[in-house]
């Protein structure tokens, strides 16, 4: 079995050393059937109410320790240590340029695309460092999906947009199987009813909110375990935004979600955990209720009360 099922819902420190080492050696190779099986067991096992303290959050899926990121000579992130709990929405908030998007893009190694970007420290998915030399970044990104700020459907049909991921990863053996993956993904993204009669229409012909749900369906189709969302509603109107927020709330039962948002109201509405970033530093993290009702740090208090940002 793979490293995920090896890891019980216990903090890292309590794991036997041998198990840890085994998990670290194990490369990211996952069959889709195993993945589905894991997903169902995971979603059952972690239905605990969001606790207040970091130590009792439930199973930690991702963990960064002392993460430093530089773009050329500019340091964008300073010593970020943060844990991402399973089947919850973790919101990253903070003023523009605070590094929250940079942090998000470290989690699926999207920063690899940028030449001048240098990442130091450790980012772990379960117990394996995703920046390790044996990690296949393609496999990693199949496990950690991403939805972007601006809807970016491919210039292809609605069907082909969703089918793109399953096709490149060979998730479907037949046309029927691919069809059903596409349907399910569109349904999960709450888009199916609106597009079922025009699956061959270009993805770009949809409205902004529909396009973003298409992008979510496209990400879901690969059957990821974690979905990263980079301000998924910032290009949308309020009605489309509330649609996406409801969808995110649905999705957290099956996926672990990390969401960057500049809207505090949105963080308060959809997330269970909140991390406040300020000038490249992680100022405060905790349950969303706690961070919003009783922030420890004066900078968080200022931001939340609308005095800055």
């Amino acid at each position: 079995m793979d490293c995920m099922t090896m890891t019980p819902t216990k903090p890292l420190s309590e794991l036997p050393l041998a198990a840890l080492q085994f998990a670290q050696q194990k490369p990211f190779v996952l069959q889709s059937t195993e993945r589905e099986a894991d997903m169902t067991t995971d979603s059952v096992s972690s239905r605990s109410p969001a606790p207040v303290e970091v130590t009792s959050v439930g199973r930690i899926r991702m963990q960064t320790s002392d993460l430093n990121v530089h773009y050329g000579d500019t340091q964008a992130l300073h010593d970020i240590s943060l844990e991402i709990p399973e089947n919850q929405v973790t919101a990253l908030i903070g003023p523009s340029g605070c590094g929250k998007s940079t942090y998000l893009r470290c989690l699926n190694r999207m920063n690899d695309v940028i030449d001048s970007c240098r990442v130091e420290g450790s980012v772990k998915l379960d117990d394996a460092d995703i920046y390790g030399p044996e990690v296949d970044v393609v496999e990693l990104r199949a496990r950690i999906g991403m939805v972007f700020q601006k809807p970016n459907p491919f210039p292809k049909s609605i069907y082909d947009n969703v089918a793109y991921g399953p096709r490149i990863h060979g998730l479907a053996d037949s046309r029927e199987e691919l069809d059903s993956i596409v349907m399910e993904s569109l349904e999960q993204a709450r888009l199916f009813d609106e597009v079922k009669d025009r699956l061959q229409a270009p993805g770009t012909s949809l409205s902004g909110g529909q396009q973003q749900r298409l992008c979510i369906a496209r990400a879901i189709a690969v059957k990821p375990e974690i979905i990263l969302m980079d301000e998924p509603c910032s290009a949308l109107d309020p009605i489309a935004t509330s649609g996406i927020e409801a969808l995110i709330d649905d999705l957290k039962d099956a996926y672990t979600i990390v969401m960057v948002t500049h809207s505090m109201q949105q963080a308060a509405r959809v997330s269970q955990r909140t991390a406040y970033f300020h000038m490249g530093q992680l100022v405060e993290t905790g349950s969303t209720d706690k961070v919003f009702s009783d922030p420890r740090d004066p900078r968080t208090r200022d931001y939340i009360s609308g005095r800055i940002g």
Partner: peptide, 24 residues
């Protein structure tokens, strides 16, 4: 954003170029 979208789905660089960037 299109290239990143393709990469984020787990495309290799060459898949992203052949299937998304060149057609676009």
């Amino acid at each position: 954003s299109l290239k990143e979208g393709a990469l984020a789905l787990g495309s290799t660089r060459s898949e992203a170029i052949r299937q998304i960037i060149i057609p676009a």
